[in-house]
Amino acid sequence: MTPKLTVDPAGLERVAAALESVATRLERAVTMRTTRLAPAAAGNDEVSERVAASLDAAARAFRADVVAGAGQAVGAAAALREHARALAAADGAHRP
């Protein structure tokens, strides 16, 4: 018996849209909160300033990683859409 693969192109499109939505919301949320992740130095002493600088660097790196991850999610959504359209076209070509 030949195995049968069933794919719902419309479902793939919905998943792609949801993935893009999550990526957009995540990027927006981390961008809006970046300043909260890097508080000002508690004092003018060297330790306070170094701690603040370290937290700022960590916040910037975190934001960059989240933005990069969101970009990857958008890329995955685009790939899902491309495959959904190709499958729908192939399925339409084989229907009587």
Rank of each mutant, 00 (worst) to 15 (best):
D56N: 05
A78I: 13
S48P: 09
V51Q: 00
E13W: 06
E82L: 14
A70V: 01
G75Q: 10
A70L: 02
M32C: 12
H94C: 13
D45I: 05
A10T: 15
L12H: 00
D8L: 03
V30M: 02
A73Y: 03
T31S: 03
G75F: 14
V47Y: 06
L55C: 05
A29S: 15
F62C: 04
A40K: 09
R50V: 14
A58Q: 12
E49W: 06
R14A: 08
L37Q: 01
T31G: 02
D91K: 13
A78L: 14
R95P: 15
L80M: 13
L55T: 01
H83W: 12
R28W: 08
R60S: 06
D56F: 01
M1L: 10
E27K: 02
R85E: 15
H94T: 10
A76H: 07
E27N: 05
L55S: 04
T31V: 13
T2V: 14
E82R: 05
S21E: 11
Q72T: 13
V47G: 03
A58F: 04
R85S: 06
T6V: 11
A68I: 13
D65T: 11
D45P: 02
A57T: 09
A59C: 12
A29D: 08
L12A: 03
L5W: 15
A68M: 15
R36S: 11
V22C: 03
P9D: 05
V51D: 01
A86V: 07
R60C: 07
A79R: 14
A76N: 09
P39H: 14
S54D: 07
H94G: 12
L19H: 01
T2W: 09
